[in-house]
């Protein structure tokens, strides 16, 4: 999912950086003193969750869970996921520096969209109903991320179009896995700590 330095055209990279700065500013505004520890610990847990490899057929995929991050953090998902990407680039060498902005937008904007669309739905009804909406939200955020990656590649040049399409198809199984996992994660959270999402949806 990471785009590396040098692949994208300058307008896409600069546009991404500006959009990311805007999103991060929105997220930081929603983070008052009381919410910083929650956002920080959640940001760390999503970092750890992204190291989990889930088997799928002969291969395995690592989790992204940006939909779940959005559902729990709202706009704060922007700075939280940015921090994750920054640490990955600096200490693991994944991704790049100049593309940090566009990579943040590609992962965090779907998270925020998921929150806007599904945030209220997962808190309503029975836990199972909430889990189903959460699963749909999880699949939606991966689909949106893949689409954003494809668009940023396609905007940079026609020669990337086949690669962009391939990325889209390759992520269909990832979408299914993320949907199921997000759904079950929300089911558990609704049963164990139901007040979690009521608070999250209003913040």
């Amino acid at each position: 999912m990471h785009i590396v330095d040098g692949a994208l055209s300058n307008p896409v990279v600069i546009g991404g950086a500006i959009a990311a700065a805007g999103g991060i500013a929105m997220g930081l505004k929603s983070l008052d003193l009381d919410r910083i520890p929650t956002a920080g610990v959640l940001s760390a847990s999503f970092f750890v969750a992204s190291l989990i490899h889930v088997p799928i057929g002969p291969s395995s995929v690592h989790l992204i869970l940006n939909g779940l991050a959005g559902l729990l953090l709202g706009w704060a998902a922007f700075p939280a996921l940015f921090v994750g990407l920054l640490l990955q680039a600096v200490f693991f060498g994944f991704g790049g520096l100049t593309v940090l902005g566009i990579n943040t937008v590609n992962i965090a904007l779907p998270a925020v969209l998921t929150w806007i669309i599904f945030g209220r739905l997962i808190a309503k009804g029975t836990p199972v109903q909430g889990a189903v909406w959460g699963g749909i939200g999880g699949a939606f955020s991966i689909a949106a991320t893949t689409a954003f990656v494809a668009v940023s590649l396609a905007l940079s040049g026609d020669e990337f179009l086949p690669a962009a399409k391939l990325v889209l198809f390759a992520h269909v199984p990832v979408m299914a896995v993320e949907a199921v996992l997000t759904g079950f994660a929300i089911l558990l959270a609704r049963q164990v700590k139901p007040e979690l999402f009521y608070k999250g949806a209003s913040a």
């Binding site: 929650t38 959640l42 989790l63 996992l181 079950f184 929300i186 959270a189």
Partner: peptide, 27 residues
Amino acid sequence: PGTNWHTYRSFGYLVGMMLVRAIERSE
């Protein structure tokens, strides 16, 4: 772990449990 419903459910609960504990820790 394998490619089956049981695995995905267990991983989902695992993630959910981690998040619930993380939030309680942050409090």
